[in-house]
Simulated scan of single mutants.
Amino acid sequence: MLTLRKAGDRGHFDHGWLDTFHTFSFAAYQNAQWTRFRSLRVLNEDRVAPDHGFGTHGHSEMEIVTVVVSGTLAHKDSSGGQGELTRGGVQAMSAGTGLTHSEFNPSKEEPVHFLQIWLLPDESGRTPTYSDGRVEDADRTGTLLPLVTGTGQSAKMEGHGPGLKIGADAAVLSGLLPKGTEVVHEFMQHGAEPRHGWVQVISGAVTLNGTHLAAGDGVGVTDEAAMHLTATEDAEVLAFDLA
């Protein structure tokens, strides 16, 4: 079963310095029908203007993944993590018992475009951690490359990506799919418990198990053995494998 979330139906706010789309309820956007999908709690697509960003603020009991599409994102947190990420940059943060961080666009000219993802942890009370890495476009062209893996079944999906870890049974994969490319992600079943998926189209267009998806569209996948993706245009996608 596929649950479609069209790009134009997402929550949207343009604050001038921040143009943001919310797939699920977040901050001022509240939608009782779209609070989460499995452990996927937040999926925001953000564009931050040059020399602007999010000041120091706190999080707890959440696994946070950020994927940079273009531009530069500077990060600093109370666990000691810091750095600047450009295209292909990925960060994974376990907020655990609590930390503070800031995210800022240090460029004076170029906006930064990124996706921020929150996943519910599989246990509370973790010690806060931060890690980051980067993937080349060539390494994720024509395939779905694991960016981040977690606990349980998702731990088995480690591949040639940056090897980042989170404290949730979830994996985040990235693909650059030239037009006509077909890729398949098969769910690994664990006993009677089925796996679930989500696909988010960042650019271009694909079909997922026969359903057309355009840029900004997302879809939840339930009771399917696999996710079959075909690029009908050159496309960039994120895919999630979820307990």
Rank of each mutant, 00 (worst) to 15 (best):
Thr35Asp: 11
Gly220Cys: 12
Val135Arg: 14
Phe21Glu: 05
Trp34Pro: 00
His212Tyr: 03
Ser203Gly: 15
Gly220Val: 06
Leu2Phe: 10
Asp9Pro: 02
Asp14Ala: 14
Phe104Val: 13
Gly150Arg: 05
Glu109Asp: 10
His12Gln: 03
Leu238Ile: 05
Gln189Glu: 15
Asp14Asn: 14
Lys156Tyr: 14
Gln116Val: 12
His228Gly: 03
Val221Ser: 03
Asn209Met: 08
Glu109Cys: 07
Gln30Leu: 10
Asp132Cys: 12
His113Glu: 08
Gly163Ala: 10
Met62Ile: 14
His75Asn: 09
Gly71Phe: 00
Ile117Phe: 02
Thr86Asn: 07
Leu18Asn: 07
Glu63Val: 01
Ala214Tyr: 04
Gly216Tyr: 04
His52Glu: 05
Arg126Tyr: 10
Ser70Ile: 04
Arg87Val: 04
Glu193Val: 02
Lys6Gln: 14
Leu238Cys: 01
Asp77Thr: 02
Phe54Gln: 01
Gly163Phe: 13
Lys108Pro: 07
Ile117His: 06
Val183Lys: 11
Thr207Phe: 06
Gly83His: 09
Gly16His: 12
Lys179Leu: 06
Phe187Glu: 05
Gly218Met: 07
Gly220Tyr: 08
Glu123Gln: 10
Leu213Trp: 13
Ala95Val: 13
His22Val: 05
His196Lys: 12
Gly191Met: 13
Phe24Thr: 00
Leu242Gln: 03
Ala235Tyr: 03
His101Cys: 09
Thr207Glu: 15
Ile202Phe: 00
Ser154Arg: 05
Gly98Trp: 10
Gly210His: 10
Met188Glu: 15
Asp77Asn: 09
Gln91Gly: 11
Phe26Thr: 04
Asp241Ser: 12
Leu229Arg: 11
Gly197Glu: 04
Thr222Cys: 04
Leu2Val: 08
Pro121His: 08
Arg38Ala: 09
Lys108Val: 05
Ser94Ala: 08
Val42Leu: 05
Ser94Val: 03
Glu110Met: 11
Gly220Trp: 02
His228Glu: 09
